[in-house]
């Protein structure tokens, strides 16, 4: 699920690349503060996108500095600190924790169990800050599990639940004037991610007898059409928001970068089938 909402690096200007990295490092820095060293290893690109989006929408007061870090002892990198980067880091931690829980439940992966122990304390602290959000997340995740293990696993039903999860993650303030558009944008992006993830994992799921929403291997063209539907709905709502700061970077991600994984899968299938 993680790592689909990335930039098209080739198309970023030098300033945009630095800016993206500034947020990425900012998220990393915030995770380290809240979750310790281990927190850094759960850094996700998707939440970097969220931190840029929310910072652009709410324009919080920010602090940009340069620092060295454990993984970059030689050069100092710019990093940004603001309350929305912190929020994205908190959401990152919540999502990663739940994912680990899921993996423990399902296959008792030792690594998952050990990681869970490391995360538990920070997780509990974050939950105390967002009790309502955590409650909603748990409910949605339960509903998603039920939908996926049902005999009639419907892509629509499951992706709508995942959409609700994204909505929960994206909406920071309870009654903000941008919540309607931001929420719909989040939901559409959630459907995009869910579909792409299901498509990406189809062969593995079949091999390991895991539930999949597809009755048979879906044709690439069908998936493309559905992905188009979701991402175009996302950008329709995105463009209604008054975003100026970093809008070039955000558009790079939503109009191009999000297709990175899809292109990789498509190329892999074409190479295998020897046809377009």
């Amino acid at each position: 699920m993680f790592g689909y909402i990335v930039p098209n690096y080739k198309e970023l200007s030098k300033e945009e690349l630095i800016r993206y990295r500034t947020f990425y490092c900012g998220l990393c820095s915030s995770l380290r503060k809240n979750c310790g060293i281990a927190g850094r290893f759960s850094l996700t690109y998707d939440l970097t996108f969220l931190s840029i989006l929310l910072s652009s929408l709410y324009m919080p007061s920010e602090h940009i500095a340069k620092e060295r870090c454990l993984l970059h002892p030689l050069h100092r990198h710019f990093y940004i600190a603001n309350k929305l980067v912190d929020y994205a880091a908190d959401m990152n931690a919540l999502l990663v924790y739940h994912k680990l829980e899921d993996n423990i439940l399902d296959d008792k992966s030792i690594l998952a169990v050990q990681s869970e122990k490391v995360y538990r304390e920070s997780f509990e602290q974050i939950v105390s800050v967002y009790p309502e959000k955590e409650k909603s997340l748990v409910n949605h995740l339960d509903a998603l599990r039920k939908a996926e293990s049902s005999d009639s696993f419907s892509l629509d039903t499951a992706s709508n639940i995942f959409a609700a999860i994204m909505r929960e993650v994206f909406l920071v303030y309870p009654s903000d004037r941008w919540n309607q558009d931001l929420g719909k944008m989040a939901e559409a992006l959630g459907r995009f991610i869910y579909l792409l993830d299901a498509f990406d994992d189809y062969k593995k799921d079949v091999k390991k007898h895991r539930p999949t929403p597809f009755a048979k291997e879906p044709p690439v063209s069908e998936i493309k059409k559905l992905l188009d539907l979701h991402i175009s709905e996302c950008t329709q709502f995105f463009e209604r928001l008054p975003l100026v700061q970093d809008v070039g970077l955000l558009r790079n991600i939503l109009y191009s970068g999000v297709w990175t994984r899809y292109e990789m899968i498509r190329k892999r299938r074409n190479d295998k089938n020897g046809s377009l």
């Binding site: 993680f2 994912k99 899921d102 993996n103 690594l111 299901a198 990406d200």
Partner: peptide, 21 residues
């Protein structure tokens, strides 16, 4: 950066698609 390579590794080892298990 190395961070993201390690993050990728972490996810591959620990985590699959969010809940499709």
């Amino acid at each position: 950066c190395l961070c993201c390579c390690l993050s990728d590794l972490f996810f591959r080892l620990c985590c699959r698609g969010f809940t499709r298990n």
